[in-house]
């Protein structure tokens, strides 16, 4: 693959080595190693409290690593904070806007902080407001914006200085499906236009399948990483879902044949690499004891489910919106 060529390996947008953050006894980020290439769209996925925000805050120089090193576009986050911050844009989990100012005033404030000339700020904000569909709201106070509009403006705010690397901490959280799609379209357009590196965290795993590469983080450790299609392929050919009253017994009974079962709410899930004939046989065999048996292609949600179950120190199951809830929204 092109990415692995030595020439491109030097063009790392983000490079973290043994990056660690400790809060008292708590290891929030645990010896993290990470390489993100220039122009790459990278997703960091994990449950609540797994260390995603702490990682972003260390990479964006807002908190100091307890150990390890990290470089952004070649600048050390510990010693060269100003240069790192000049190279990045950050869209925080929480909005970074002044609610009392209008959309245009917020963008102007942000632009001035990056020392852009006023005429240039005016030009870029008009462009960004148009791109994010906010032109007719430019002079309205942010307090009057909907969640979706606020997010869009927040992202516009994060890119007004054309950063090389954009950090997005759960950019679509709390948004409905149309708004989430809109946000992704903006980011897609931005990437196409500027080629900027995007480092994303999200709970909505369907969205992460657009990433070039994802990493699953759990209790501060990366437990699996790779291109989404690769991870999905590695998981197995199919996922079987079984609904039944007596889930525990059926899971135990099938384990020798299908391997470790995963409980996803009311359903039992198995990874399956066999063929349709085997499935049909299974269906006949259990026909009168189960409510439903379905099989389907695996997706990133399944990878996430299995990653969480199989990694050693499991705590509470991942906060991942259940598949149906997410898909139907």
């Amino acid at each position: 693959m092109m990415r692995d060529s030595p020439a491109l390996a030097t063009a790392l947008a983000i490079r973290a080595r043994e990056l660690t953050k400790r809060y008292g006894d708590m290891l929030a980020v645990d010896h993290l190693n990470l390489d993100v290439h220039a122009g790459e769209f990278f997703g960091l996925l994990g449950p609540n409290g797994s260390g995603k925000t702490s990682t972003i805050h260390m990479l964006s120089t807002l908190i100091r690593p307890t150990g390890g090193t990290a470089h952004i576009a070649g600048h050390d986050v510990s010693n060269d904070g100003v240069k790192v911050r000049a190279a990045i844009g950050v869209v925080f989990q929480e909005s970074a806007l002044d609610r009392n100012l209008s959309a245009a005033e917020n963008l102007r404030f942000a632009g001035l902080l990056y020392d852009l000339p006023r005429a240039e700020i005016k030009r870029r904000s008009d462009e960004l407001l148009a791109l994010f569909g906010l032109t007719d709201r430019r002079d309205k106070p942010v307090a009057s914006f909907s969640g979706g509009m606020r997010r869009a403006l927040d992202i516009a705010r994060g890119v007004i200085h054309r950063p090389q690397v954009l950090f997005l901490d759960e950019p679509t959280i709390g948004l409905d499906l149309p708004n989430r799609k809109k946000i992704w379209r903006f980011i897609e357009n931005l990437r196409a236009e500027t080629g900027m590196t995007v480092f994303l965290t999200t709970h909505y795993l369907e969205e992460a399948s657009e990433c070039d590469r994802v990493a699953f983080i759990k209790s501060g450790r990366i437990v699996q990483s790779g291109p989404p299609h690769e991870l999905v392929r590695r998981l197995g050919a199919f996922v079987i879902e079984i609904e039944a009253d007596d889930t525990d017994r059926i899971a135990a009974e099938l384990a020798p044949r299908l391997g470790h079962a995963m409980m996803d709410g009311e359903r039992i899930c198995f990874r399956f690499n066999g063929d349709a004939a085997q499935l049909a046989a299974l269906q006949t065999e259990f026909a009168d004891r189960i409510g439903a048996l379905r099989w389907r292609k695996p997706n990133l949600n399944d990878v996430f489910l299995w990653v969480n179950e199989t990694s050693a120190d499991c705590e509470s199951p991942a906060h991942t919106p259940s598949r149906d809830a997410t898909l139907q929204r």
């Binding site: 964006s60 807002l62 911050r85 000049a86 925080f92 970074a96 002044d98 990056y114 020392d115």
Partner: peptide, 10 residues
């Protein structure tokens, strides 16, 4: 969120 804008500025 002004403080957030300020702390990420270069």
């Amino acid at each position: 969120g002004v403080m957030r804008m300020l702390v990420v500025a270069p």
